[in-house]
Write a protein that binds this DNA or RNA. Structure first.
Length: 436
RNA sequence: GUGGGCGUAGCUCAGUUGGUUAGAGCAUUAGACUGUGGCUCUAAGGGUCGCGGGUUCGAAUCCCGUCGCUCACCCCA
């Protein structure tokens, strides 16, 4: 096999298909999203949990459902030399629940609220905002069936988007019932759709047998036409699910979250029950979800635990950042276009190599005092050093040459005004600590 | 896995009906009073035109293949 094949640049290695490097120029948005997320999660009483990036394959087969596409063809599965099969996590809910059970949290403190941030893996064809290694941040509230908890999670997501300044998102919500009522209306739906079988698109005809609910969000116009004339799923909910759904909606109104009741919203993962929701952003393409979540009352028992209800969501970080970029109208760059880390406050310019070592000493002196500072390691001329300082956007340049060295002084240039002051070196720290 | 679009300097692109040493802007580097930034001017570096093959006297330009990227579909965050 030739590694030369297909390379674009002259270099041998490139990031594998469907993965991407988050470069310094883009990092500020990631940082902001993560920081705001953490803040909001913790504000609402969620605790961070980190699970391994790989798990026993059976965990995902059990939780997601054997017949789902994720399990059938999208998992990175391999054996680690023994008999065990392991899989790079395609989502983080099942791992969190696994940990919850493994440490027997349900016995000590049944109700737990967790949050996680990390990479997930799905072997799909890459597309806008959809990668093979992608990142999610999400929450899981385990151990309670209160519909208000469903609403709490929606509130958390909404506030995160508000706080990062992302305008133009929509909250869509639906109920897909529970294990009691869902099979009933699945059959009703199937029967009704069978009457129109010939009018459905080819794909939906196969969905008729595999996954009826998926027909509800088919993009084909004819199929839409048919499904829009069907009575909404909510007509078939059992008493318990109906009350649950109504409470959720009322509470959303109560706390002022606008939502769209979308009877066609369904979920691909088997474990969802009752409340499902999705937050989409108008600036995105075909894949417009930036957050998806819902209640999953059967997952814990599915993977061998007691019957315990839970709700959660996952925010797709790539998709969210894409939306942020669209809103901010920014593009990716390989070089920092705005300083993504904090710009150093001070840049030290040395004139002549004789004073360089002393400047290095001063550099470390500043840093020890918690003053961010940097200097030249490339052997540039004083002029070029100034250019670098200017580009970095530092407030002060400390200039030191043989003259200053002899007198025990330093020249400080205030970049904004161009003004220069000369002070004694032993006053340096005080001067900066007062200014910064 | 299926289908469409694209592939020329670090980035964004131009490149006329195939014709000599492939261009621009931005970025980079260096100069324009010997120890100093932003503006301006000058100059320099940087591309085997994704890769391979074919047609041709001659191909970045046409054909085929291949790889990669991208968008969309299935599915999903």
């Amino acid at each position: 096999m030739s590694v030369e094949a297909g390379k674009k640049s002259g270099y041998v290695f490139k990031a594998p298909r469907g993965t991407e490097d988050i470069l310094p120029g883009n990092w500020s948005l990631w940082k902001k999203l993560e920081e705001v997320g953490r803040q909001e999660f913790e504000l609402c009483g969620y605790y961070e949990i980190r699970t391994p990036v790989f798990e026993d394959t059976r965990l995902f087969v059990r939780s997601l459902g054997e017949a789902t596409d994720i399990v059938e063809k999208e998992m990175y599965t391999f054996s680690d030399s023994e008999d065990s099969s392991i899989t790079l996590r395609p989502e983080n809910t099942a791992p969190v629940m696994r940990a919850y059970l493994e440490y027997e949290m349900h016995k000590t403190k049944k109700f737990q609220k967790y949050y996680y941030i990390g990479p997930q893996f799905r072997k799909e064809r890459p597309q806008a905002g959809r990668l093979r290694q992608f990142h999610q941040m999400g929450i899981e509230a385990v151990g309670a069936n209160d519909p208000l908890l469903d609403v709490e999670t929606i509130g958390v997501a909404v506030r995160i988007f508000d706080r990062i300044g992302l305008k133009g998102y929509n909250v869509k919500i639906n109920s897909i019932g529970c294990e009691k009522c869902r099979p009933i209306f699945r059959n009703i739906l199937k029967d009704k759709l069978c009457e129109h079988e010939t009018a459905l698109c080819e794909l939906c005809r196969s969905r008729l047998h595999r996954n009826v609910f998926r027909i509800l969000d088919c993009k084909n116009e004819k199929c839409k036409e048919i499904t829009h004339h069907l009575p909404p799923v909510s007509d078939y909910l059992c008493e318990e699910c109906r009350i649950h759904a109504n409470t959720v909606r009322e509470a959303l109104v109560e706390i002022g979250i606008p939502y769209i009741a979308d009877a066609h919203l369904v979920r691909g993962l088997d474990y969802y029950t009752k409340t499902v929701y999705e937050i989409t952003h108008s600036s995105l393409g075909a894949r417009d979800a930036i957050c998806a979540g819902g209640r999953y009352d059967n997952l814990v028992s599915d993977i061998g635990g007691p019957s315990i209800g839970a709700v959660g969501f996952a925010i797709g970080m790539e998709a969210t950042i894409l939306a942020m970029q669209n809103v901010l109208n920014k593009k990716n760059t390989s070089v920092p276009q705005e300083v993504s880390g904090p710009a150093p406050s001070v840049y030290i310019v040395y004139i002549g190599n004789e004073v360089k070592k002393h400047c290095f000493y001063l550099l470390n002196l500043l840093r020890k005092s918690n003053i961010s500072a940097d200097f030249d390691y490339e052997g540039r001329s004083p002029k070029a050093q100034m250019r670098v300082a200017n580009k970095l956007g530092v407030k002060y340049v400390l200039v030191l040459g043989p003259e200053e060295l002899a007198r025990g002084n330093v020249t400080i240039k205030i970049m904004e005004t161009g003004e220069e002051v000369i002070i004694r070196q032993d006053e340096l720290l005080d001067w900066f600590l007062q200014k910064l």
